[in-house]
Design a protein around this nucleic acid. Structure first.
Length: 289
DNA sequence: AAAGATCACAACCGCATCGTT
DNA sequence: AAACGATGCGGTTGTGATCTT
């Protein structure tokens, strides 16, 4: 949907002295085609030194911040104009589960899409859908609870981005409070990794994950730091005989939806893996994005 | 046809981080 | 080390378009 620029949301339409004063002030609100043209022409010709200078040199009464946003979210030539596909929506869901609301990181893995676009898509469609599903599930559970003894208290959750995703996955029962999203990975030729959800968090599955690499050469686990100061660290373990590889999510070429978030204590001890895999650089936390 | 509700999305705001002086 | 400005990020809001009643 394309909206026509209007004379005032925050923009100008005042009269008299107020208008004159406003004319001197920074312009806000929707961008006019003329402003777009100026910004686009300036950047394609001269590039960007600093955004505040772009605003000035392009003759725009806009903040550098506003110019940057307009360019990044709308004018950039490499942006996809077509609507988000089902496939892309799946990717968004998967990555949101894995990374939380780190829209810029998610956008970086989806060429042609912006963080704002993905965030809007999530907020307006996916979250709503999942909230509705969660409400339906809660209603069902409430109905069942009437005929059953009280359930044990929920497991403790850590205040991480992933914690937020627990609610978002309420449509895929059972919902297990998670510290780490866990996936099964299959390494493909060329280093790409197909990431598939584990369909049931059974003891067997967890055991297999705990020994990923030693007996199942192609099974691995992915996740992120899962809390505290490590919450920004994204990684994937891949098994290969007795060797285990730690790779950044940037190395993954494809993602598939994962339907479960499960906690596997001890499996994803990042610091332990770091020091084992990178003994010379055990202080580094460079796996983050 | 009109009014109200909902959707979709552009853009602002506040805050955090980074680089420079 | 501190101050400052620029940049980037995520949350939120406002508004036109579209749908529903």
């Amino acid at each position: 949907m394309v909206r026509k620029p209007t004379s005032n949301r925050h923009g100008e339409a005042e009269s008299g002295e107020a208008a004159a004063a406003a004319a001197e002030k920074e312009r806000k609100g929707l961008w006019s085609p003329e402003e777009d043209e100026r910004l686009y022409t300036h950047i394609t010709r001269c590039g960007v030194s600093t955004w505040s200078s772009v605003a000035q040199l392009a003759g725009l009464r806009r903040s550098g911040k506003s110019c940057r946003l307009r360019w990044m979210n709308y004018l950039r030539p490499d942006l996809k104009k077509e609507p988000i596909t089902d496939r892309e929506a799946e990717t968004i869901v998967s990555l949101q589960k894995l990374l939380g609301n780190r829209w810029s990181v998610i956008a970086a893995k989806m060429p042609g899409r912006t963080d704002n676009e993905i965030k809007n898509y999530w907020n307006s469609r996916i979250r709503k859908r999942q909230t509705a599903a969660a409400a339906a599930a809660a209603a069902t559970a409430a109905g069942r609870a009437k005929s059953e003894p009280a359930a044990p208290p929920p497991l403790e959750k850590e205040p991480t981005a992933n914690a937020a995703t627990v609610e978002a996955t309420a449509s895929s029962p059972p919902v297990i409070p998670a510290r780490h999203p866990v996936f099964a990975c299959q390494l493909l030729d060329g280093g790409a990794a197909a990431v598939e959800a584990i369909q049931s968090p059974t003891a067997t599955e967890q055991q297999r994950l705990n020994h990923a690499g030693s007996s199942e050469s192609e099974v691995s686990a992915c996740g992120n730091g899962g809390g505290g100061e490590d919450s920004s660290r994204d990684y994937c373990y891949s098994g290969d005989g007795d060797m285990l590889h730690l790779m950044a999510l940037d190395d993954l070429d494809c993602y598939y939806p994962a339907d479960l978030l499960i906690d596997v204590p001890g499996l994803l001890d990042v610091d332990a893996w770091d020091s084992e895999l990178y003994p010379a650089d055990s202080t580094s936390s460079s796996m983050s994005n």
